[in-house]
Amino acid sequence: MSQTKMPSARQRRLRSWLFWAVPAVLLLLPLATNPYTQFIANGILISVLVTLGFTLVIGNLGQLAFANTAFFGIGAYASAILAAKLGVPWLLTIPLAGAFGALGGFLASSAALRGIRSYYLAIITLAFGELMRWAYLHAKPVTGGTDGMPMPRETLLGTSLSDDTLKFYIFLAVTVLLVKATLNLMRSRFGRAVMAVRENEVATASLAIPTARVILVTFMWSGFVVGCAGALFARHVGHVFPESFGMLHLIASFAMVLVGGLGSVLGAVLGAVLLTALPEYLRAFPGMEELFFGLIVAGVLVAMPMGLASLLRRVSPIFVERFYREAP
């Protein structure tokens, strides 16, 4: 399966042109939306970041860590607390939330670095997420407890930050920036080390590559990306509640990673777009969302185990990501 043709130099140029063309076209999107569809589009951008951070760890690094909902919640609460309690402008809270997310990534990596791997890592990171949710519920003086944290009203350039169009441009900028940074990181020497660790950690270590540092940095970058997404989410909903960071969110983003294509940046985007938009179409069937969601995910897994991105790779080598490996 790994005989996929690599893109030629011309195709690579086309690809980098395409990369900028997509957000350029998206700049025009608000002309075609109403507040509802705009809200969904904003939600999709957040999902893209969450999925991207998740796929880095479970796809590229090959570690079964389910801590991304914890990073997401940490980012959202960091943003809300900084904005509401300390009066930090929300825009500034985005990188700060990312930093707190990275701290979460550091904690999660400490489990992996102790040698807790595979299903053990899955379970301990699940527990990490649920313990964080418990903390949001019970640390009432800091987090507002069950009432959650409302985001303060703010304006930017004379426009209220409750405006979905303004939010869209900010979300889009953050998303493009982080996707590009992640792509560059994965194409660098470091990215190759990440893949090497996934393929064979012992052999990688024997090449004098500091595997522990590779694991640590990947987790922290994942935490940073998802933490930033959390800050966007806090503004997206305008009110941060503990319930938003439970198992349902985790399962949704897990599904996005695999439906899009494990370990693929393009897949993260495709999965996030599809599975964020899909439940909106399922609104027509109240009470049956879970059933359809389950059936669709199972169907995609059976029909294309390597996700939607594999479909595009077959269409054109443009969509082949460097160092991406088809085999499980």
Partner: peptide, 22 residues
């Protein structure tokens, strides 16, 4: 016109915006 919130704030906001603007 029924809309599901699933008792989730993001989903509820989407429902409200759909009802109001679409």
């Amino acid at each position: 016109v029924q809309e599901d919130t699933a008792c989730d704030s993001a989903k509820g906001l989407a429902a409200a915006k759909k009802l109001i603007s679409q």
